Computed example of a mutant assay.
Amino acid sequence: MTIRFARRTLLAGTAALATARTMAARPVSAQPASDPVGILDLVVGARAPTTPTGLTLSSDGRMFLFMPRFDEKTVFTAGELFPDGRVAAYPSDAANRPDPARPAETLFHVPNGVFDRRNRLWLLDAGLMASSGEPVPGAAKLVCIDPATDAIVRTISLQPVVTKTSSLNDLRVDVRPGREVAYLTDQGQTGEGALIAVDLASGRAVRRLAGHASTRSVDGILKIVEGRVLMKREADGTTSPIKGGANGIALSPDGARLYYTPLMSRSLYAVETAALLDPAKDDAAVADTVTDLGEKGLTGGLIADSRDRVYLSLQEFNGIGRRDPDGRIEVVATDPRLIWPDTFWITGDGWLYLSSAQANRRPEHNGGIDRQQPPYAIFRMRIDAGPA
Rank of each mutant, 00 (worst) to 15 (best):
V206N: 11
P177Q: 12
S202R: 07
S157Y: 08
V218S: 10
L171R: 00
A197G: 04
S214L: 08
A197W: 03
S167F: 15
A210C: 11
Q187K: 15
R179A: 15
G188K: 02
R179Q: 14
G203T: 04
L195H: 07
L158M: 10
K164W: 12
V173L: 10
S157T: 14
R207I: 13
V198I: 06
R208K: 01
G191D: 04
R208N: 03
S166A: 02
R176Y: 09
S166R: 00
S157K: 01
D186R: 02
V198Y: 00
D170K: 00
A205W: 04
T190W: 07
S166F: 05
L195T: 00
S217T: 03
I156R: 03
G188M: 01
S157V: 05
D174Q: 09
R204K: 15
G203F: 04
T163M: 10
V206R: 15
I156T: 12
A197S: 11
R204F: 13
N169A: 11
E180C: 10
I196H: 07
A182V: 11
R207C: 02
G211R: 06
A197I: 01
V161M: 02
D174R: 11
V173T: 08
V198S: 04
R179N: 14
I196A: 00
A205D: 07
R207Y: 04
K164S: 08
D174N: 13
S202A: 11
E192V: 11
V181R: 15
R207N: 03
A210F: 09
A201R: 12
P177K: 06
A210Q: 14
A210H: 15
G178W: 13
R208I: 07
Y183Q: 05
V206E: 15
S202F: 09
R176T: 12
S157I: 11
T185F: 05
